[in-house]
Computed example of a mutant assay.
Amino acid sequence: MRKEDCFYLGKIVSRHGFKGELLAKLDTDEPQLYENLESVFVSVGNNLVPFFLRRCQLHKTRLLRLHFEDIDSEADATRILGSELYLPLQMLPPLEGNKFYYHEVIGFRLNDARRGDVGEIRSVNDQGAQALFVADKDGREVLIPVTDDFIEKVDRDQRVIHIRTPEGLLDLYLT
């Protein structure tokens, strides 16, 4: 399985007990969706390796308590401590309305209520405090904050996100 075909679920953050159980911090708003997993992909080096689960249950708020098959000791658990967890993209629950996954909108057009076409979304930069659409408009990079205040409508059929940006923001890029 390739990382491009998967989504990041979380990271193994600590051992739990002495029999190989682990705790993973999930990167999701709905951790309960993942409490009955049968398997996950664990990032080992540059590869995703399938690991099958004996037990998987929520532990507090965003932690998932995992007991993998073939991991029965503290030493076995320590070997994968800090590893990232992935699941295939098709396991993502579908989103509707103006909600979307960042990978889903790559290639969509941005259309501003005042300025019209703002360009094609090339990526979403979520490394800073504010996620940004990174769009290309005729060879110029345009950065638009991903915020509900700007997004008016996500049109999946036409592959367009309709936005209303504050006056002057697009002038930074398009004049």
Rank of each mutant, 00 (worst) to 15 (best):
R62S: 09
L172I: 12
G20I: 00
S39D: 01
F52H: 02
E152P: 06
F150H: 15
L26H: 05
D29R: 10
E69L: 01
P94F: 06
D157R: 13
F51M: 15
Y102L: 05
E38I: 06
D126V: 04
I12W: 12
R62E: 14
L33E: 14
V134T: 06
E141C: 00
L169Y: 09
K99E: 11
L85F: 11
T78D: 12
S43R: 13
V124Q: 06
V154K: 00
F68N: 10
D112C: 10
R54W: 02
P166M: 03
L132D: 02
L95D: 07
V160L: 13
G168M: 03
N47P: 00
K137D: 03
K3W: 03
I163L: 08
T28H: 13
T165L: 15
N36Q: 14
K60G: 08
L85R: 10
R79H: 09
K19A: 02
R15L: 08
I151L: 07
A129D: 13
D148V: 14
T28A: 01
L143V: 03
R140A: 02
L63Q: 05
T175V: 04
R109N: 13
L172T: 07
D138I: 04
S39N: 00
R54V: 00
R54L: 04
S73F: 00
L89H: 12
I144V: 13
N46F: 08
L81V: 03
S73M: 00
R15T: 02
D72H: 10
G128D: 04
R79C: 03
G107Y: 06
F150A: 13
A113E: 13
L132C: 00
L89R: 15
T175M: 03
D171K: 01
F52W: 01
T78V: 07
F18M: 09
V105T: 09
K3L: 04
K3A: 08
K25R: 15
D171A: 00
G97S: 11
E74H: 03
N47S: 05
L132M: 05
V49C: 01
L53F: 05
V105F: 03
P31Y: 10
R159Q: 14
G82P: 09
R15E: 12
P93K: 13
A135K: 11
F150R: 15
G168V: 02
K19C: 02
G82H: 14
D138V: 11
D72C: 10
S39I: 00
R114T: 09
F100C: 07
E120Y: 05
Q32R: 10
R164L: 07
T165K: 04
F7N: 05
I106D: 06
L85D: 09
A131L: 03
Q127H: 07
L85V: 09
I12G: 08
P145T: 04
V13A: 12
P50R: 12
S123T: 04
